[in-house]
Nucleic acid binder design. Structure first.
Lengths: 354, 354
DNA sequence: TTGAAAGCGTTACCAG
DNA sequence: CTGGTAACGCTTTCAA
């Protein structure tokens, strides 16, 4: 039998309250008595107040949940997600708060359960795909949260940290357009819930499933619209997953037609690297060269010479956690837009003469 | 006021037990009644049973702790640690268990508190440095745990997953010795608790602080002993942290003497990369060339052409979590030694003619 | 199939 | 500074 606080109280001959105070409110008793109690506890092997009981009584847990709306084990393989976690952990560390990583089972009903059962004081929601259901559960629980996806219907009181997806996307697309590219493919993960890999027909950007994808595609379209390339002239390519393999599979055959795209704008660096993989695999290599851009500026992007949009990944995580842990008094301060930068490297160049 | 289970019971006109059963034991009531209860709950905005209260009553939490005996935010920047986490998360995911990452405050007293307060059913202890105190707390709490460090005094019932540090180290050192190297430096992080960066005098391997370091240094010494190089002839170099910067700082000046080492065996890839950084920075570059080896085989090692020891990082995490989540009936199965492989790349070569 | 009663181990309030 | 008392919100026998 593990000893309880009661056992220590009995051993010392004081009440439970006093033992409790010895742990949680040292100023409420004499140092001598406190020592006597702590000694007795050590003697008995009492490991301190039971965390669960304490949380129940106090009404808070001392840990924040980090929710990935994708497989948790996948999150660790995504460099951007890892840097986000680094930021969250830095803030959590400063606060003495733990981080609970909640894995989501495939079935959505079970996933709801997972979120309902998480013993946390709030959530950082790292948005990968559709997370409305998760936010619903969190709101129903009355827990605070901070999300990283732009939500179209975000309430004013909803805390959020992100970037101006549309402006950032427009910036990199303008760079590509400025190089003369007009036959362009836009590559994103899970554009539509159940679409197959490869080129897709999308009536408009609004059809895209995920807000982040919508934002980026809109920015891409903005820039090309300005040089006279309509939405209908752009090729949207769907990838089944945010991985190099998925990207390579998605663009297989894309360059085989009579008028192949001369540039591919990807929604993430990982996807862009996959496109480079696919191009490198082609017989004859990437000839004529195809310009490729990414998004995020993960470490691998530099090594691969990828032109991309840099966003401050760690800051995103750190600020998300800080917004959760010290809510700003001013509601407007709950919406944070981080700066981005266009990073031009070797993966983009002028359109080759045909 | 957030509604409680009681409120739902009142609304439907049944007892709390029945509502509880509706959530946790659907087979204990009619489907119709269950629906009625769940509907009422939805109506009232009842988010399901409070996780903390449920844990208190049930006696378990449904989450495992992952304990890094270093800064948590550092763990995410260590590629090996991230891959370990990937493995843990894969196992946790399969089990429907959450992972609690516990940050340790600098002061050890507070760190004990952090471990005492973690609401978890067990711990995966990722060993970085001295973790005895943490294991003490965990044992006092009566929680199961799995560690990744070889412990000299490990009880037979102690679960552990790791590699044969000594044999692996001997293997890579034998490779270096076979290339003719005899003036060799051994680089490790935190060899002694408070030693400064740089060369160190160590009477013997037994003085090294951390078991992992001891194991690796012993293996290195074994291999060189076999070719007639005594312990006293080896230079042990201390790094203040497992980072490229720390390694570079530690070996600064190491190659300036009259008889500099021709090879550096590092205790991790990250340290080895730091040595390569330092060599590249030298006026004249690394000339004559110095052989460098690492440990772990992180992704960056391949790109850098680093000769190293490969160990299965994800398997380590996955198996640690599995050992915790499904304890093997057979105690012997609780000790897992993973295979390692010597990976020879360009960073090692024959001793240059002097 | 349902309900009453008894805790799970702690902390907070308030009187002494 | 100390100790009683009353929750915190739920699950689990066990009897009806």
């Amino acid at each position: 039998m593990k000893p309880t606080l009661q056992a220590v109280a009995d051993a010392v001959g004081v009440s439970r309250s006093t033992v409790s105070n010895a742990y949680s409110r040292p100023d409420q008793l004499s140092a001598a008595l406190r020592e006597r109690i702590l000694d007795a506890a050590r003697q008995l092997g009492y490991p301190g107040p039971n965390p669960t009981a304490r949380s129940l009584r106090r009404g808070f847990v001392g840990s924040i949940g980090v929710l990935f709306t994708s497989q948790l084990s996948y999150a660790f393989t995504d460099p951007f997600a890892v840097r986000f976690l680094t930021g969250v952990s830095a803030a959590a560390e400063r606060h003495g708060t733990s981080m609970l990583l909640v894995p989501l089972p495939p079935a959505q009903t079970d996933a709801r359960r997972a979120v309902e059962n998480a013993a946390v004081d709030g959530f950082c929601v790292y948005c990968v795909a559709d997370e409305e259901w998760a936010l619903d559960v969190i709101r129903a629980r009355g827990l605070p949260y901070v999300s990283t996806a732009p939500r179209d219907d975000a309430g004013a009181d909803e805390r959020y940290v992100g970037i101006d997806e549309r402006a950032a996307a427009r910036g990199i697309a303008a760079h590509v357009a400025g190089l003369g590219h007009r036959r362009v493919a836009l590559l994103a993960d899970a554009v539509l819930p159940d679409a197959p890999a490869g080129p897709l027909t999308l009536d408009g950007v609004h059809e895209a499933w995920h807000p982040t994808t919508r934002g980026r595609l809109t920015g891409f379209a903005d820039a090309f619209g300005e040089v006279g390339v309509d939405w209908a002239d752009l090729t949207v390519v769907n990838a089944l997953g945010n991985s190099r393999q998925a990207a390579a599979a998605a663009v297989a055959g894309l360059f085989d037609g009579p008028a192949p795209p001369t540039a591919v704008l990807a929604g993430s660096d990982v996807l862009a690297l996959g496109v480079l993989d696919a191009l490198a695999q082609r017989p004859g290599g990437a000839n004529p060269p195809v310009s490729v851009t990414g998004f995020d500026d993960i470490p691998e992007a530099a090594a691969a010479g990828l032109t991309t949009v840099r966003q401050p990944a760690e800051d995103k995580g750190r600020i998300a956690a800080e917004l959760l842990l010290d809510p700003p008094a001013d509601a407007a301060a709950g919406h944070v837009l981080l700066p981005t930068a266009l990073v031009v490297r070797a993966s983009t160049g002028p359109v080759p003469r045909s």
